[in-house]
């Protein structure tokens, strides 16, 4: 069992640096091979996890949550108050959403989510995080230069809009509730969900297109 020995792990990382093949695919193959050999993992279960997060679990879930909040004021209220319970109504409660918080964009507030210390992300409603979310440039700059970051994503903020950055330093995870675009009165939940981009739920997109 683990001894939680950090010095030992630091030493192991140095050994692995010279020991493992340099290609990522070969490293992961070596890990899976040995775990299978030792009875610690089942390859078909890995297949199933890949399929689950490729086909079933992804940002379309978050988009459904947003669309429902737009058309159902009672749901929106429950979502703001107790997001895990609200997304559980849709069957979306799961990995890393046990302490979900929803932060709402308004005419005067724009929210942006980051994890500066690792790459925390609300998996069960947004799926696998985009590469940029996990990259050093985004993690370093989102808290210090959020407006510069937003400009690179093509987001223009009106004068007077305050930026609120949420750094996921604990087990709380954040979902941005973007504003419903004008000209969408009478649209169904399905039609509205199709307008919601993944980036708008992280905060690197703001003004959604009515289609």
């Amino acid at each position: 069992m683990t001894e939680f020995d950090a010095d030992k792990v630091a030493h192991i990382h140095r050994e692995l640096h010279s020991h493992l093949p340099s290609e990522s695919a070969l490293r992961v193959k070596a890990l899976e091979t040995l775990l299978v050999e030792k009875g610690l993992v089942n390859s078909q279960t890995i297949d199933a996890w890949v399929e689950a997060y490729s086909e079933e679990i992804g940002p379309k879930r978050g988009a459904r949550v947003v669309a429902r909040a737009w058309i159902d004021e009672e749901f929106r209220r429950r979502l703001m108050q107790d997001a895990p319970a609200a997304i559980d109504e849709l069957g979306y409660l799961g990995k890393a959403t046990g302490h979900l918080k929803v932060v709402e964009n308004t005419d005067s507030v724009h929210n942006l989510v980051v994890c500066t210390l690792c790459s925390c992300y609300p998996f069960s409603i947004l799926g696998i995080a985009p590469a940029w979310y996990k990259a050093a440039a985004y993690r370093a700059r989102a808290v210090r230069d959020p407006r510069g970051v937003l400009t690179e994503f093509g987001v223009e903020l009106a004068d007077g809009v305050e930026v609120r950055v949420w750094d996921s330093t604990a087990e709380l995870r954040y979902l941005v509730l973007p504003q419903r675009p004008a000209g969408t009165d009478g649209m169904s939940e399905d039609e509205l969900a199709a307008l919601v981009t993944r980036n708008s739920m992280i905060g690197t997109d703001r003004d959604l297109n009515a289609g």
Binding site: A25, V28, L40, V41, T45, I46, W49, V50, Y53, K95
Partner: peptide, 14 residues
């Protein structure tokens, strides 16, 4: 492909 394999390993390995 290997990214998915690693994701899966992290979810289900003992």
């Amino acid at each position: 492909n290997w990214e998915g394999r690693e994701w899966g390993i992290a979810q289900c390995a003992r």
